[in-house]
Design a protein around this nucleic acid. Structure first.
Length: 504
DNA sequence: CGCTGCGGGAATG
DNA sequence: CATTCCCGCAGCG
């Protein structure tokens, strides 16, 4: 893609991350010189600055299923993640992946959605809530200010990606078409070619027996998901399509059809959430019929869902939860929403691959990392929205009362939030584990990818308190945010410089 | 029908 | 008291 001076001038850090600001600041950076390109799958404690012209940003779009949350602040729109809908039995689709539907945003619709059966195995569907923000759903904040749209995310999604919105919509409209043709065979059939040319990567609608209406209604999931067995789905086509779309996006970088990676974990050396950043580059094996009318438009990663699931299940489970299968996992999960884990002892299992990862051998100013003590981070994140500053008044960071200290802490905040992974106490110090136990961030032992991810930075960078940091706000900003981001990318993508593997 | 943003009001500490 | 969450409403596609 052509170098756009207005977009992501830096290959590693988002523009938003390079500036120091918080969504709650009275004053946002004025007249930003650059804007970030839109990220459909923001994950971690990240900040972006979009152009107010960016339509997706205007609509506050996200690949994640985010619902509006009233924070009684007219200027800042807050949204929280709904998680992902999966098959309660975690049945495997033909391609080995798992069902990962997009939760309906509307409460009513979501309830209805959950009553439906898994189109693949007919067992129940289950909503896996997002607890990536210290036990609470990941939150996204949007704020329009001047010519910029500020975006801030808090939390690391602890679940697979749902389908992208566009894909869900695409399938929905596809169903409509299908139903229409079902009820008006003659007429519709004759019009079909037209529709097929624009949307039909699936292209089978014509020749494929239309599902019984009753079936469609009984399991609307049909409209919302990829059953390998479903005759109306055309994988190969969409694969090609996606490759075509995605390749140009990541010149020189890892952009290979997923098929080439028989083992996702090879491509995604990271833990479960590595799927986030790795997604865009990965393509292919889409079980979904993608309905992009305009190839220039960023694919919303519908395929990714599957990659995601593959990666998630194969890689993360393989690495961390060999003893647990999806079934156990999801069954063990009760949508207790923020309450669960309180009583659970978070068991941070060894994250084998991580510490040995070559990327962790980079010469990074490690000493700064641990400073945002796990406990601090955990506590801070609990304070979902505003004024995170006070959160940083955690004892671990209390070094003085001077104004300077305050400023330092502020920087600390930003810095720590640049670390896309929450740092949990127990990972640092057994004693601090108590804090963790008291926070709602925990989940069933070992089930949370986040546990490992949380531990990783720790393992890589043993805690080390540096008193001098209180005077180094600037250093903090630069080093921490830098390191954090770099870490984030390295960490999650396993690719040192594959920055914006987000959709474009 | 579902998505979206808004805003009241309850719950929480 | 501040903050967050839940819920219903209305506009829109």
């Amino acid at each position: 893609m052509p170098a756009d001076s207005m977009q992501d001038p830096d290959p590693v850090l988002s523009y938003g991350m390079k500036l120091t600001w918080d969504i709650n600041d009275p004053q946002m950076p004025q007249e930003p010189a650059h804007f970030d390109h839109f990220r459909e799958w923001p994950d971690g404690y990240v900040r972006f600055i979009y152009s107010s012209q960016e339509k997706k940003a205007q609509r506050h779009l996200s690949g994640w299923a985010m619902r509006n949350t009233n924070n009684h602040n007219g200027h800042i729109l807050k949204k929280s993640c709904l998680g992902v809908v999966v098959c309660a039995r975690a049945c495997a689709l033909k391609d080995g992946s798992h069902l990962q539907l997009r939760p309906a945003i509307c409460d009513k619709a979501r309830l209805k959605q959950q009553k439906k059966a898994c189109p693949n195995c007919h067992s129940a569907l289950e909503l896996v809530p997002c607890r990536g923000h210290s036990g609470y759903p990941v939150t996204n904040f949007w704020r329009l200010d001047g010519n910029a749209i500020f975006f801030q995310a808090k939390g690391v999604h602890d679940h697979p990606r749902p389908e992208s919105k566009s894909e869900t919509e695409g399938r929905r409209s596809a169903l409509k078409r299908q139903m229409a043709s079902f009820y008006q065979p003659q007429k519709r059939r004759s019009e079909e070619p037209e529709a097929g040319s624009t949307q039909d990567t699936r292209g089978h609608s014509n020749s494929t027996p239309v599902p019984e209406p009753s079936e469609l209604f009984a399991m609307p999931a049909d409209t919302s998901f990829p059953i390998s067995g479903h005759s109306s789905l055309s994988f190969p086509n969409s694969d090609v399509h996606r490759v075509t779309c995605d390749l140009p996006t990541f010149p020189g970088d890892v952009i290979l059809p997923f098929q080439k990676y028989s083992n996702p974990s090879i491509y995604f050396p990271g833990p479960p959430w590595s799927y986030e950043l790795a997604s865009p580059g990965v393509t292919g094996s889409s079980p979904y019929p993608t309905l992009y009318k305009d190839p220039s438009i960023v694919p919303d990663d519908p395929d990714w869902i599957h990659l995601n699931s593959l990666q998630y299940n194969v890689s993360s489970y393989g690495s961390y939860e060999r003893s647990l299968d999806l079934t156990a996992r999801y069954h063990g999960w009760k949508p207790t929403h923020g309450k669960a884990g309180l009583e659970e002892k978070v068991d941070c299992r060894p994250c084998q691959a991580v510490p040995t990862s070559p990327y962790y051998n980079l010469e990074l100013p490690c000493r700064y990392l641990p400073v945002a003590p796990a406990g601090t981070q955990a506590l801070q994140t609990v304070i979902t929205t505003t004024v995170a500053y006070q959160a940083y008044q955690h004892p671990a960071l209390k070094h003085g009362d001077s104004v300077q200290e305050v400023s330092s802490l502020a920087s600390c905040t930003y810095a720590s939030e640049n670390l896309p992974m929450p740092i949990y106490p127990q990972a640092l110090d057994p004693q601090e584990g108590a804090i963790q136990a008291a926070s709602p961030s925990g989940r069933a032992p070992g089930i949370v990818p986040g546990d490992c991810q949380a531990a990783r930075p720790t393992l890589a960078f043993p805690q080390e308190t540096d008193p001098s940091r209180t005077a180094g706000a600037d250093v903090w900003d630069v080093c921490l945010s830098g390191v954090g981001s770099v870490m984030a990318y390295l960490d999650r993508t396993g690719q040192p410089f594959n920055l914006d593997n987000e959709d474009f």
